[in-house]
């Protein structure tokens, strides 16, 4: 167990890379899935503008999912097999959702005018299905891929939690990227999604230590508990800040429109750290550790070198793309 031994630290590096990739995916595709969910309750002109706000980004956002699954596949092939076979049906459901929304995005503007509304409905449905099934899978993963009725019930709760979390970050994105009436509408959406997400976060935080003695010990042992207490504390502070910022935004136009998005991202990061702490060093909860699941060192090396060179470039041109499309969203024209 030392840092000079690649078979010790390489799997850890890949776990970190995979975790980072999942986190970035949840934030980035989270907001565009959230925008899709919110389109349920929008007029056609609003839908056009909402689509325009995510148009240049959604494709790259979804690539983070491919990278996450890809890293799981190449770095921890055995875990990939166990997790994805265990979640076979919800995985398929999610893929169907992602397919529907991905194609509806393009078809809505290109197919016959009479079909636009149908494609919009499919876009909303696809976004909801994808968000719900991701949350459902997270829930099932938290309870150790258990198949009991209570585990499935928890999966459903978790699915609804992720849907509201995506709706919140989607609304926060729209507050940032739109103005006037749509922005005001987005503030109300965010005010609606915020308490829903809080309830979900609370459920997951309570259930998580209760289903596993190991996780319970990890969180409530002395003296770590004092340090760990900062996680929920910070989360609560951020949630209050989101609430206050939404109030201010609804009253005055001068308020800073990026605060809700920034704080929601903060909540995502804290929730992620909490989950990561609970499960480390397991890739399959209580079953397979990061070292037992890892591929051969020689393959990890070759991917590691590529990742170190390419990842900064990816982050660089992703930043470039957000810079080019900065400011309020306008109509999309080729």
């Amino acid at each position: 167990m030392n840092l000079h031994d690649p078979s010790y630290w390489l799997p850890l590096a890949f776990l970190a890379a995979m975790g980072l990739s999942i986190l970035i995916y949840a934030i980035l595709d989270g907001y565009d899935l959230g925008v899709g969910i919110l389109m349920l309750n929008a007029t056609e002109a609003e839908r056009d503008r909402m689509i325009a706000s995510i148009g240049p980004f959604w494709d790259a956002n979804e690539t983070w999912l491919v990278l996450s699954v890809g890293l799981l596949l190449v770095a921890f092939p055995e875990a990939h097999g166990i997790v994805l076979s265990g979640l076979y049906l919800p995985v398929t459901l999610m893929l169907v959702g992602l397919i529907l929304r991905g194609v509806a995005f393009d078809f809505r503007a290109k197919a016959r005018a009479g079909l636009k509304q149908t494609w919009d409905r499919l876009f909303v449905a696809g976004s909801m299905i994808a968000a719900f099934s991701q949350g459902y899978m997270l829930g099932r993963y938290i309870v150790g891929l258990d198949n009991s009725a209570s585990a499935q019930f928890f999966g459903v709760i978790s699915g609804l939690c992720v849907m509201s979390a995506y709706a919140l970050i989607g609304a926060a994105w729209l507050i940032l990227k739109t103005e006037d009436r749509l922005q005001q509408k987005s503030i109300r959406w965010a005010q609606f999604a915020l308490p829903a997400m809080c309830t979900g976060l609370l459920c997951v935080s309570v259930v998580n230590p209760l289903v596993s003695d190991r996780i319970f010990t990890k969180w409530f042992s002395f003296p770590e508990v004092f340090l760990l207490f900062t996680l929920p504390l910070l989360t609560v502070l951020l949630l209050i800040q989101i609430h206050r910022s939404l109030l201010r935004l609804s009253q005055t136009k001068q308020a800073r429109a990026y605060i809700p998005f920034l704080c929601t991202t903060g909540v995502y990061i804290l929730a992620f750290i909490g989950l990561a702490y609970s499960f480390f060093p397991y890739v399959v909860p209580d079953e397979l550790t990061v070292w037992a699941a890892a591929s051969h060192v020689s393959s990890l090396w070759i991917i590691f070198i590529g990742t170190i060179i390419v990842l900064p470039m990816i982050l660089g041109y992703t930043a470039l793309s957000y810079y080019i499309f900065r400011g309020k969203a306008r109509e999309l024209v080729y």
């Binding site: 596949l73 190449v74 991917i303």
Partner: peptide
């Protein structure tokens, strides 16, 4: 694994990100 990983890292992000700039 490494061949698939290199496809994602070197190709997917490149095409997906610059597609946004190319289209819009």
């Amino acid at each position: 694994g490494p061949l698939l990983a290199y496809e994602v890292l070197t190709a997917f992000f490149l095409e997906a990100t610059f597609l946004g700039i190319m289209l819009f």
